[in-house]
Nucleic acid binder design. Structure first.
Lengths: 189, 189
DNA sequence: CGCAACTTTGATACAACTCAAAAAATGTGG
DNA sequence: CCACATTTTTTGAGTTGTATCAAAGTTGCG
């Protein structure tokens, strides 16, 4: 069901207030959704990886802009088709509602994150990334520091400083800008 | 459909990780949902008023605790009953999904709020309250300062200071602790 | 009226931001 | 493959806004 679409880096999939005709599911790659505040700052709402659904926040229109972070394969499905397919099938309705509830839970957890200190935000982010990409201890971050900063509500300088501090404390190892090994997870807590 | 239930002040309707068997709709009064962080701080997720649905964040279990802020009348409906009632009716499925999407949008807006300065958070909160309770310029806040602070991610001292400053700037008038008149909305931006 | 809970006000400390610049990585053309 | 230009990241110094700690002032209930 649906159509596979291929996108390269930094392409826009839909924008704020675009009418929402589709549901989206990632086959591979990475997506970011964001809003731009009236003062020009950008707030990244969420990152999505292989297997995740996105675009669920739409009521009639989309509430965020969705862009590729890296080359990405997205499955696009017409809302009408989904609706027709779930109608009359209670487990399917339940599953559809659940996808949106998961999204809601993520937004609420993100909320919690914004109340914490800088170090804890970065650590939580790293832990989220390992768990989301079912890695054990090594993460390959597909997004630049600016994206991380905008997701965590920090400046890139602060993100950078925290990572450096974590490395000095040998809690992590920075193999390069994108690859990070989590060493002492207990210290990361 | 469903059963009306009456609650007095500060009563718990459901708790985090309680199994989610029902959907809830407010007939009158006010509800707050919250989480307690591991350091003991409380984060209020949302306030709900007459006409609002809540408890939509539940996947299998609830992700927040729901309490009454004031005496409240809540309509409680079994999830199974709702599911049975919407199955086979596409517009109803759409409406149910929309209720959750609205909730998701609110959580995302709340996120945006946490990136702003203290004054803007308080102002946004006041504006949200007038619009949610379809008032014109006078708000009757049913919740104490601590709730406002925990909702905005500020301390009660900061909330209090901002309100005082806004009154000095004659942007608002504090009739008493709960009643506030918005005067110069342009200054409130 | 008196007490307990809530709110406001004041002084100080600190975490993250801002501005500025150096260093590293990445991409490009010879 | 190397040299250069551009982008991204890191590091440094100083500022600012909000939290913290402490105390005084209100409000409202029994």
């Amino acid at each position: 069901m649906g159509t596979q679409t291929l996108w390269s880096r930094n392409e826009k999939i839909f924008g704020v207030r675009d009418p929402a005709e589709y549901f989206y599911k990632i086959k591979s790659g990475c997506i970011r959704t964001y809003n731009v505040l009236n003062d020009g700052r950008r707030r990244i709402c969420a990152f999505y990886f292989s297997g995740d659904y996105f675009g669920m926040e739409a009521c009639k229109d989309h509430g965020v802009t969705a862009e590729t972070v890296a080359p990405t394969c997205v499955l696009v499905i017409k809302r009408k088709v989904v609706m027709a397919s779930v109608a009359g099938d209670i487990p399917k309705v339940r599953r559809l509602l659940n996808i949106t509830a998961v999204e809601l839970r993520r937004a609420q957890n993100h909320n919690l994150l914004l109340l914490k200190g800088a170090q804890e935000r970065v650590v939580d982010f790293l832990l989220e990334m390992v768990s989301r990409k079912q890695g054990q201890s090594e993460v390959d971050l597909p997004m630049p520091r600016q994206d991380i900063a905008d997701y965590l509500g920090l400046t890139i300088e602060t993100v950078s400083r925290v990572l450096t501090r974590l490395e000095s404390a040998s809690a992590i190892s920075l193999l390069n800008y994108r690859r990070i090994v989590l060493r002492d997870l207990s210290a990361l807590n």
